[in-house]
């Protein structure tokens, strides 16, 4: 089976370890992974801030970049939801504005082929035990767009429960937004921080050492709060947990911890 990786701009520029883990995980499961280099950003930040027309070139670029792939896999519920939920909307708006059906066609061709990583694993590959090994205590925050727009449900939890050595603790109020919200985080910093603080408090209360999620943008926000508080909890994308095995345990390689001596010790650093 062949699939194209939509790395997402955040992972490409800030969290390459997540994209690398996604490649390794999929390859381990027998998927031939491509990374079409024409991809950049899905355009969600622009669209959600009110710049729909400025998003249109990105819809076209994405549709072109992933043309011909039956499956496009993104390690981000939010970016996958942007393509699946908003691209058709952007196309329909262009049509309603009598600017032709070309954009709607491009959006409509890509939307149904876009998969968030965990739903690709469970629904397309039909696996729950991906052969991962991660001997740490983990709590999971379901980010909103994956949860509500994609309807991921308990897919990520089913995958995590099947990971050897992983101790999963339930996050109270898991389904409540962490307060990131894209540009909301900087347009409404007080509320964003208040929401994030509550989420961080819940996560710390679980006693877990790893706060797992499926969206690095949310984890960047929560990680920023945790780091500022020097809290003993480390955000980590689910792809990196699922990619870890006994032979190739998680290293946290691309997070370049060495550059930040004040970074709290990561769990299992001796492993």
């Amino acid at each position: 089976m062949r699939a194209a990786l939509f790395a997402t701009c955040v992972n490409d520029a800030v969290y390459p370890s997540t994209a690398i883990a996604t490649v390794r995980l999929l390859e381990r499961l027998g998927v031939e992974v491509d990374f079409p280099p024409g991809q950049t950003c899905c355009g969600q930040p622009q669209f959600n801030t009110g710049y729909r027309r400025e998003t249109e070139p990105m819809v076209r670029r994405m549709a072109r970049a992933f043309e011909g792939y039956e499956y496009v896999v993104a390690p981000s519920g939010s970016c996958a939801a942007m393509v699946r939920d908003n691209y058709p909307r952007i196309g329909a708006m262009a049509q309603a504005e009598r600017r032709g059906g070309e954009l709607a066609e491009a959006a409509g061709s890509l939307a149904p082929r876009m998969y968030e990583l965990t739903e690709f694993l469970t629904d397309v590959l039909g696996v729950e035990d991906v052969g991962a090994y991660f001997p740490h205590s983990v709590t999971y925050h379901p980010s909103c767009h994956g949860l509500r727009l994609l309807g991921l449900g308990d897919r990520p939890l089913r995958l995590l429960r099947a990971v050897q050595g992983l101790e999963l603790t339930e996050l109270p109020g898991a389904e409540e937004c962490c307060g990131f919200g894209g540009t909301f985080a900087v347009k409404n910093p007080a509320v964003s921080t208040a929401m994030g603080d509550d989420k961080v408090r819940s996560a710390l209360g679980t006693g877990a050492r790893v706060l797992c999620g499926g969206d690095n943008s949310c984890l960047m926000h929560l990680g920023g709060l945790l780091h500022r508080q020097s809290a003993p909890l480390r955000p980590l994308h689910i792809a990196e947990i699922l990619a870890a095995t006994r032979d190739e345990p998680w290293q946290g390689e691309a997070r370049s911890e060495a550059t930040r001596p004040d970074r709290p010790a990561r769990p299992g650093s001796a492993a």
């Binding site: 992974v33 985080a185 994030g196 970074r263």
Partner: peptide, 26 residues
């Protein structure tokens, strides 16, 4: 940018973007 960093640290940037890793490794 202070709207972010007043309450949150910035993430550490990686040594290279993913697309460079891809070119080297695949």
């Amino acid at each position: 940018g202070g709207a972010w960093t007043d309450s949150r640290d910035l993430p550490d940037l990686p040594t290279e973007p993913f697309r460079d890793w891809w070119q080297k490794n695949r």
